[in-house]
């Protein structure tokens, strides 16, 4: 936040609430994405942007007009827009001779660009071109990444992290099992990245877990990796820093063994053995007068203890 943000005081309650909504929070909400196009775009790019917008919908802003800017050369205007709409993810589409059908996925930390990855669209099938039924808006997708490049190559690793950030949707404590309908599958093979979106059909398998059948839903894109702008390790680490309040406090005197069994020491009060009833027999039963006498005796004993 700049210095001025603090100096100018909100004049109404409404604007105060608005500013509070935008202030940094301990537990952050979903990241919203802004989807915009550059000075020139092809039909493919425009359609792709629209389709990705429809996948991301409640948490995205689609910019309708052109924004003549080049994120890799000067990211200030992007940073300005991210601040204006309070978006920390962006998708920028452009098309020119040198880099035809260009998509730039990126994210922002503290209104400064953290990562940017440029992907060129080689092949594209839009959401509307496929005749299959679609998922309802705002479905939390299942994300699957395949291919060893996502684990070995640094750029692919960052791209994976970026794509997870972009598509994962809100973090939820629970999901409806029947609502797991959408699968986004990213495959890195052959120097390309294939993004496929499937509708997931749960079929009876005879046991509890259903069998899965997939139906391609669109959009499907074949990407090639172009330029990348990755954050320095310092900044990346800084962006990952969690506030202290969120870290779980370590519980003392609890240990686990190799099998995951929990060990701890349980402290209990001393049991009064005199009141323990072992076996009920007629001969051992106390008579009424005896009981009273014993109770008195017990009290006396207690008192003496205290005196000591």
């Amino acid at each position: 936040m700049t210095q001025l943000d603090d100096v100018v005081k909100p004049k109404t309650k409404r604007s105060k609430r608005f500013l509070e909504g935008r202030a940094p929070k301990l537990v952050e909400e979903v990241k919203t994405a802004m989807i915009m196009k550059g000075g020139n775009t092809s039909q493919t790019v425009t359609q792709a942007l629209k389709d990705i917008y429809s996948l991301k919908k409640p948490h995205a802003v689609l910019y309708k007009k052109k924004n003549i800017t080049r994120p890799f050369e000067d990211s200030t205007s992007l940073e300005f827009f991210s601040k204006k709409t309070d978006c920390s993810l962006f998708l920028f589409g452009s098309h020119n001779k040198k880099r035809p059908n260009n998509l730039i996925f990126g994210r922002v930390f503290d209104f400064h660009v953290l990562d940017m990855v440029e992907l060129g669209i080689e092949k594209y099938v839009s959401l509307s071109d496929m005749k299959a039924s679609k998922c309802p808006e705002g479905t939390k997708p299942m994300l699957v990444f395949a291919g060893e490049a996502f684990n070995t190559d640094t750029e692919h690793k960052r791209l994976k992290s970026l794509l997870i950030d972009f598509f994962r949707g809100p973090t939820v404590p629970a999901v409806r099992l029947a609502g797991l309908e959408h699968v986004l599958h990213f495959t890195a093979v052959d120097g390309k990245i294939f993004m496929r979106s499937y509708k997931c059909l749960l079929k009876k398998s005879g046991c509890r877990t259903p069998r899965i059948e997939l139906e391609e839903m669109g959009p499907s894109l074949d990407f090639v990796l172009r330029r990348t702008h990755l954050a320095s390790d310092d900044l990346y680490k800084l962006a990952h820093r969690q506030p202290k309040a969120l870290k779980a406090k370590k519980k003392k005197n609890i240990s686990h063994n190799a099998f995951g069994t929990k060990f701890g020491r349980v402290h209990m009060q001393k049991q009064d053995l005199s009141k323990l009833r072992t076996r009920k027999m007629k001969g051992l039963r106390k008579r009424k007068s005896q009981v009273i006498a014993e109770e008195q005796g017990g009290q006396a004993a207690k008192v003496t203890k205290v005196d000591n």
Binding site: P24, E28, S88, R168, Y236, L238, A239, R241
Partner: peptide, 14 residues
């Protein structure tokens, strides 16, 4: 369960 993949924050902690 809670998400395990570390992802960068949107803004620095308050």
């Amino acid at each position: 369960p809670d998400p395990a993949t570390p992802l960068p924050r949107e803004k620095p902690p308050p």
